[in-house]
Simulated scan of single mutants.
Amino acid sequence: MTKQVQAVSVRKSRGVERLVGGQFMMDGAGVKINRVLTGPLQRRLDPYLMLDAFGSDKAGDYIAGFPEHPHRGFETITYMLNGRMRHRDSGGNEGLITNGGVQWMTAGRGVVHSEMPEQNEGLMEGFQLWLNLPAKDKMSDPWYRDIPSEELPSFALENGASVQVIAGETHGVTGAVVREGTQPLYLDIELPAGESFDLPLPAGHNAFVYVYRGEVVVEGKGVPQARMAILDNAPDADGVRIKATEGSKFLVIAGRPLGEPIAQYGPFVMNTQEELYQAVEDFRAGKFAA
């Protein structure tokens, strides 16, 4: 059930540092994606490592899926707007993600999983976000949670704004998942034309907006559909004010930077090269969750 809450006001909004269009590529066994948050942005958007946007009604763009592959050292958050995807992993977890649902997986010390479509026609659309783990948690036990759309906390404002709170806390509503170390905030917001949404953000937290329907304006800067706006870290700003120029839907994602070294080799993200070598050896030796 969607909760009705009072709007809050931001005194000084962050601005747009830059717009990012992403890189179109193939991943998995041949899935067409737009990699919006790429490797060169990992430092700037710490603790986030990657954001992929996918969306097509052509089966050939997604039907091959993501067969078994390993991960270590971070968390994956898959948010499905439309479609059906089956998750299985080496920890014995299995789940079907459907319209509006989320799957949150902590790879920790290592897990092998697959994500395969359970449809051969129609629209498949959504996002996968990679969230780094603090060094002290990189070798933690793997963890998995399926969150159907009806279990996602949500709220609405009098101006017609509606917000799904996937992670974190805002406007007195706590999301489906909370993390102490990285303090992720992950919101899906729908905003009517001409209306604004004020969102408080902690100083020093990195944040970005990704528009997937319509167009919004942040501090005079237009953010069109299929663009990510990296928000600046202006020291006098206490949040962000977003105005919809037309009926729009967008993600707002923020988090506390870890400030730790990032060493990545494909699906392994650690802090040092030595830890990466060990991850590869452990995977080859079959030491990931079983």
Rank of each mutant, 00 (worst) to 15 (best):
M124P: 12
S13M: 01
R256P: 04
S13W: 04
I253K: 05
H205Y: 12
R18I: 00
L19K: 07
A193E: 11
A254R: 10
W130F: 14
L49I: 14
P67H: 05
V111L: 09
G108K: 02
G65R: 00
A176M: 05
A254P: 09
G239H: 04
N93H: 06
R256D: 03
E260K: 02
G73A: 05
M228K: 08
G126Q: 04
I262H: 02
G110L: 07
G214Q: 03
L45S: 01
A229P: 02
D52V: 15
H87T: 01
Q183A: 11
M85G: 05
K287W: 09
F127H: 10
D57Y: 05
G247R: 01
K249F: 03
M270C: 13
D238N: 04
E121S: 11
F208W: 06
E121K: 04
N82I: 14
P47M: 12
M80S: 01
S196I: 14
Y210I: 12
N159D: 03
T245I: 08
D27L: 08
Q164S: 09
Q278C: 15
G110R: 00
V36M: 08
S154T: 03
R88G: 02
N271T: 15
Q23C: 11
R227V: 09
Y210R: 11
M270Y: 04
P192V: 00
E121T: 09
G122K: 13
G60P: 10
G73F: 00
G100V: 00
D146C: 05
G55R: 08
D188G: 13
P235A: 01
Q42I: 13
D137I: 07
R44Q: 14
Q278T: 11
L131P: 00
T245G: 09
M139Y: 15
L123P: 02
G126N: 04
G266H: 13
E118C: 05
M116L: 12
D141R: 01
P142C: 06
R35M: 11
A167H: 05
L133G: 02
S90G: 14
E68Q: 09
E121A: 09
V177F: 03
M124V: 13
V173T: 10
G28H: 02
N82E: 15
M124E: 08
D57H: 14
P134L: 05
D232I: 00
A7V: 07
I63M: 09
R227Y: 15
N159R: 01
P224D: 04
L19N: 07
G83I: 08
A254Q: 06
G220D: 11
L157Y: 10
F208V: 10
Y277W: 13
E151C: 04
N34K: 15
A53Q: 14
R11N: 12
N206H: 09
R44K: 11
D52N: 12
E68M: 12
L201I: 07
L37F: 08
F155H: 06
A279Q: 00
G239W: 02
P134Y: 12
F268K: 07
W130K: 10
I262V: 11
L123M: 14
G83Y: 03
R256K: 14
D282F: 01
L251Q: 11
V209C: 13
Q164E: 10
E260Y: 02
K12C: 13
